[in-house]
């Protein structure tokens, strides 16, 4: 059980959230190659360590919360809005090592 810090509502139990998916990928341009689209739709990295993902506060404010979660410890490292650069901020603050 993890606690997710919703930018609007504050720290809430993950039971209030619905896992949406990988937040590291970006939607390709409409005219991108089939290979690029295939990669976006089907292929996911499965990293051991920090992982960016979206959790929707579905039983709360409905916000898509970007979460940086360590898949090996299940620890939530940072939470923010979709536009936030969580990994870069964590790197800058020294909470994350480069290459992790």
């Amino acid at each position: 059980m993890i606690i997710i810090d919703c930018p609007y509502c504050g720290p809430r139990d993950h039971a209030e959230f619905t896992y949406v998916g990988d937040a590291a990928r970006t939607r390709p341009a409409e005219d991108a190659s089939q290979a690029t689209w295939f990669d976006y739709v089907y292929l996911r990295d499965n990293p051991r360590g920090p992982h960016l993902e979206y959790w929707q506060h579905s039983s709360g404010c409905r916000a898509m919360v970007k979460v940086l979660r360590d898949t090996s410890s299940h620890r939530v490292l940072a939470c923010g809005l979709p536009a936030d650069q969580l990994e870069a901020e964590q790197l800058e603050a020294g909470h994350l090592e480069a290459g992790q």
């Binding site: 619905t18 949406v20 937040a23 939607r27 929707q56 579905s58 409905r62 916000a63 898509m64 979709p82």
Partner: peptide
């Protein structure tokens, strides 16, 4: 509904 929220918040803010 969630899909539209994802579209508005993440894909096309």
């Amino acid at each position: 509904m969630s899909h539209i929220e994802y579209a508005l918040q993440v894909l096309w803010p």
